[in-house]
């Protein structure tokens, strides 16, 4: 599986993501600088975590208008899988590729800890290696992860099975509506999540449960 990781000024988890992708897919991913206008021929595009543009204006707001995002939107429209983690999720929402927005954590504090994630939809290209209802530990590290959308949008996401991951066992770290940790677009080829599965892939990380997400995409594109 060929993959690309987009790098913005202020991205800081791109190395973790590049390492995870190479380790799990066996193919060295391509890092693409945000000023580029085109993406190589890949099966997966990843927007990594970090603090693009220092979170100026709103998290992900400036990055969402970068040159490369038109190419990312084109790939998404063509059915290529697009994954946004943490700041990447914020950028996907700001760019309109996913609905809603990530607001400041309800308690106003930055959170850096493990949470429990429940797989709410195990049929998606990003979660098919998990079982529905499966709960796995995953680290979060963010100050703006409070998912919000209007009631009608949340109802639609829930009704269409587009909430892919939920914070479980009372570990919602940010006040997200319905404990939403990750969502899918209508076609199911774009997913955003606040937690960092790329940091839960080796025993050294404290577990390997995050591998399932990448292995799901690997299987989906095979």
């Amino acid at each position: 599986m060929k993959s690309a990781v987009i790098v913005f000024p202020g991205s800081n988890r791109e190395r973790d993501m590049l390492y995870a992708l190479e380790t799990i897919t066996g193919v060295k991913p391509v890092a693409v600088w945000h000023t580029e206008h085109e993406l190589p021929d890949v099966d997966l595009v990843v927007l990594p975590g970090g603090f693009s543009y220092g979170d100026y204006l709103r998290t992900g707001a400036i990055a969402a208008r970068a040159n490369i995002m038109a190419a990312v939107a084109k790939k998404a429209a063509d059915g290529v899988r697009v994954l946004g983690v943490c700041n990447g999720f914020q950028i996907l929402c700001e760019s309109g590729l996913l609905p809603g927005v990530l607001m400041r954590n309800a308690h106003l504090r930055f959170v850096c800890r493990n949470v429990d994630l429940e797989v709410a939809n195990a049929d998606s290209d990003f979660t098919k290696k998990y079982a529905k209802g499966q709960i796995w530990p995953c680290p979060v590290a963010h100050g703006d992860g409070n998912y919000f959308a209007d009631a009608e949008t949340v109802k639609r996401l829930e009704g269409e099975g587009r909430v892919s991951l939920r914070y479980a066992n009372g570990t919602n770290p940010n006040g997200s509506v319905n404990d939403i940790a990750g969502i899918l677009n209508a076609k199911g080829n774009v997913m955003g999540l606040m937690p960092h599965p790329e940091n839960m892939i080796e025993p050294l990380n404290g577990g390997t449960a995050g591998r399932g997400l990448f292995e799901s995409v690997l299987e989906a594109v095979a």
Binding site: R65, A149, D150
Partner: peptide
Amino acid sequence: AKLLANTVI
């Protein structure tokens, strides 16, 4: 509409 405000919120 395109940048300064996020009209979702």
